[in-house]
Design a protein around this nucleic acid. Structure first.
Lengths: 337, 337
DNA sequence: TTGTATGCGTTATCAC
DNA sequence: GTGATAACGCATACAA
């Protein structure tokens, strides 16, 4: 059953049927109703594939994420799909496993499909290939919105980020307020903007509070739990171990917590711990962790909204959307005396 | 740049170009190479949209899940995308929020797109509409594979499930072996097959071990954490509270654990707790929980593989794929004397 | 082995 | 308001 058959059955032309489908106002109410009746009766469903071909654009957005296991992306994807659905868009998902090569092939697969837009948290942040391809897409008329991470060569692309710097700034200030002076950070690679920005916030907080920044209290890992575990170990074996630790992201918090638990230390008692990104499951089981919270869901929604906006308004200048953070204090910012 | 231009540039017909693209063997190696060179040079990328229209089928599979917040589905999706990608398929994702109406509209949206197949964990398990639609798809040539849950009217559809009954059977037997006799279960609604099957395994284990099944030790919830919390509360306020509790799924485990923690009880010390489905994050932070584990990832992969198989071999009879479970004992199956 | 011609189901541009 | 018809970019039956 296609548009032509419907036309025949309704005694009108295909053009008219098409107009009815697309709610064109240039069709007499009576004919519209009649056509609709026929469509209903024969259970006609228009082919998106054909429409896409004709329209040269599909109602599909590609979402490219680097790690389908990181809880951060759960909320993100949920937010994206919610807004997408509400606007009649569907979501095509790609997992790159933090692998630039897979990202590259995902991006070419996407090219075959005339998607309406691309939402991406890039794996290849330093390798400029990703940036080049995405910029190309954008200039060809397929809008792109970066999420969470800046990338090399992506300076002209819209981006949705959390207020990382000020978030960690606030967190570290809170630690200072609690009387801490030996405040460490488990930081990540400089190339990953969110984690790096958090390091900057940490530095500024110390600076503004007149606390000297000591290299030994800055432990660099790789954004993953395992490395963070090692960082924590390093920190705790210092002659003067820190009394407070700020973790650069949720996985890093987990790694740090694991070290503590394995060594019979309790966050909020033996040492203060502050994380970035809330970890829902921990709340379920009553493990407290003070964190800088940002709404991944909101980030997803904002990103999709920006994409929709960009579809309608090309040529506007690059916009950077910053999602606010807030501190959730659950007691682990302190230590028991 | 389209197939026609490539043909002109290469001095061949569009048919030949098409053959090269599709790796047809009926093309002289020399011409093939030449055509490929031209495609390379002009950076030609064939349009999947056009191919889909012509072929009347797209290389896209629809994945419909009921809760994009439940970690179970992320492992599942990861497995699905992995196999899909390897076979040149892309994944279109739909979130139904456990809402049959949203499921229904997702299923109609899917119809517009000539997908290669549908993978679904249904929300509308009892409302037979979903079953009817899916069966329709199947008979129209769009294969369907159910995941995790049986549904009303879906008896002719392939399904991938975990070995729920025997998994919980094993778990409860283990509890018995640990000396427990007052073993409770936090069970779910009977309509949700996975959780119900686990209840059956629980019953069989008790039966075969000569332990009387007592209604008061069977607490019915709704598969969610909050209800499970209440169930736990109910169980613990019995005159003779259970010494061991088996939880029907991961969210229910979380609810139960939360109750314990809030009431200063420790799983594995004051009461034994056994869950179904591992909760990765808990391991990160060293909260032990003995569980029946099944690999969501494997379920996803198996489901996608079955879908691929079904695409090639229609008409074969309905197959039910059962993914094995295994016990992971972390100490919470015991109580301290 | 290659080419020609037609169809896939829409939308869009014209005419009427 | 409505209709006829040419795209859209590819696959394929059939012919050569």
């Amino acid at each position: 059953m296609n548009i032509r058959e419907v036309a025949k059955l309704a005694g009108v032309s295909v053009a008219t049927v098409s107009r009815v489908i697309n709610n064109s106002d240039k069709v007499k109410p009576l004919t519209r109703e009649h056509v609709q009746q026929v469509m209903q009766e024969y259970n006609f469903i228009p082919s998106a594939t054909a429409r896409d071909l004709s329209f040269q654009r599909s109602k599909v957005v590609a979402v490219v994420v680097p790690d389908l296991k990181n809880p951060f992306f759960y909320g993100l994807i949920e937010g994206i799909t919610k807004v997408a659905e509400k606007n009649g868009y569907q979501v095509l998902i790609f997992n790159t496993n933090e692998n630039p090569d897979k990202e590259y092939s995902a991006l070419t697969a996407i090219r075959e499909r005339n998607v309406a837009g691309i939402l991406i948290t890039a794996a290849g942040v330093k390798d400029e290939k990703t940036g080049r391809i995405l910029t190309e897409y954008q200039s060809e008329g397929t809008p792109v919105v970066l999420i969470d991470r800046y990338i090399e060569g992506g300076d002209s692309l819209d981006i949705v980020v959390a207020d990382n710097e000020s978030g960690s700034y606030k967190a570290v200030c809170e630690l200072v307020r609690q009387g801490h002076e030996r405040i460490a950070i488990i930081a990540g690679e400089k190339d990953y903007s969110p984690v790096y920005e958090r390091e900057l916030g940490y530095r500024r907080a110390l600076l503004e509070n007149g606390i000297r920044i000591r290299q030994m209290y800055i432990a660099y890992g790789n954004q993953m739990a395992d490395e963070s575990y090692k960082c924590m170990k390093r920190l705790m074996s210092l002659k003067k171990p820190p009394t407070a630790v700020f973790c650069g992201n949720n996985m890093m918090s987990l790694g740090a917590l694991r070290y503590l638990i394995e060594n019979n230390m309790r966050a909020g008692e033996d040492i203060a711990v502050f994380g970035f990104d809330d970890i829902t499951v921990l709340n379920h089981v009553g493990i407290p962790l003070s964190v800088v919270d940002r709404s991944e869901r909101e980030m997803g929604m904002k990103a999709m909204e920006q994409l929709l906006y960009r579809m309608k308004h090309s040529g506007i200048e690059r916009t950077k959307i910053s999602v606010p953070t807030r501190l959730i204090l659950r007691g682990t910012e302190k230590v028991k005396q």
